[in-house]
Simulated scan of single mutants.
Amino acid sequence: MVVYNELVALTAGAGLLGFAAFLAQLIKGRRIDSEGWAGFFAVAGTLLLALGIHTTVTWPFGGGGFEYANIAFGQPAAGFGALLVFAAVYLWRHRSLYAGPAEDANSATLAAFKPVGIFVGALGLAMAVLAITFVRFQLGAAPAVEPISGRFGHLPILEALFLGGLWGVVALGALLFAIALWTDRPQLLRWAVWAWVIGGTVFLLFGAMNFYTHIGMYYNIEHGTMHKW
């Protein structure tokens, strides 16, 4: 089974943290480096879009009841990747806008993001449903052969609560973002920033840890060992 959810989680975490930082600069009225942010969003968005679409249409996670991961990981990654690519294109095409007064550029950016906020909210709704699904069906338990995570595999509710909580925090940020733009309540954007900072940090650390735990799992399988840490 060839999977790459390590890179997906790592990039999603970086993307969430990056967009949270970008949004914080917008609402604080700071000058935006449009070319720099366009480059960042293009890199993160392209990776997530490509890997998310591949996961969605090929279902590389297979066997042992793990097929749900193709839906829970692949489809949100594809959607988030597309949104980041949109942000990259917008910022690159409107470079001259950001050379002018910061207040004008920032207000124009939020206005331009309002239509796509509908999809952000829709993706947030999907993430909220996935969060409930993780907990309801106690999904996500690591096999015993996987280091660190596998030590808690006999308690599936623990990882289900962790994944459900993580998806839920990101969903909250997405819903707040959409509501803030469509109800003209910009004060809610600060809470969206905090939700994505928390979710992005956890995603980033979780993805980094998985480079270790997944390689350790394959090592244990290949060599018949049971390294727990």
Rank of each mutant, 00 (worst) to 15 (best):
V8P: 00
F61Y: 11
L155I: 15
W167A: 12
W182D: 00
Y4H: 07
G52R: 08
Y68S: 06
A102M: 12
A105C: 15
A141V: 04
A99Y: 04
A87N: 09
I179L: 06
Y219H: 08
K228S: 09
R151F: 05
Q187S: 14
G173M: 11
Y4E: 01
Q75M: 04
R93E: 12
G36Q: 12
I148S: 07
E67S: 03
A21C: 04
L84P: 01
V43E: 00
P186C: 12
G79F: 06
L181P: 09
G100V: 00
G199K: 11
Q75V: 04
A20K: 07
L84Y: 14
F113R: 03
A99D: 11
P115C: 00
Y219E: 03
H154V: 10
A144T: 10
E67P: 02
F203G: 08
A174G: 06
F211R: 09
A50W: 11
I215S: 15
E103C: 03
P115F: 02
P60G: 05
G15T: 10
V43C: 04
L26C: 02
T183Y: 05
L175T: 05
G150V: 01
L47S: 14
G165D: 13
L188D: 02
W229N: 01
M226R: 13
F41D: 10
H227S: 06
V169P: 15
V43R: 03
A131Y: 05
T109G: 06
L84Q: 12
T183S: 08
Y68E: 05
F137R: 08
L130S: 11
N106H: 10
Y218M: 14
A112Q: 00
L84V: 01
F162Y: 15
K114V: 02
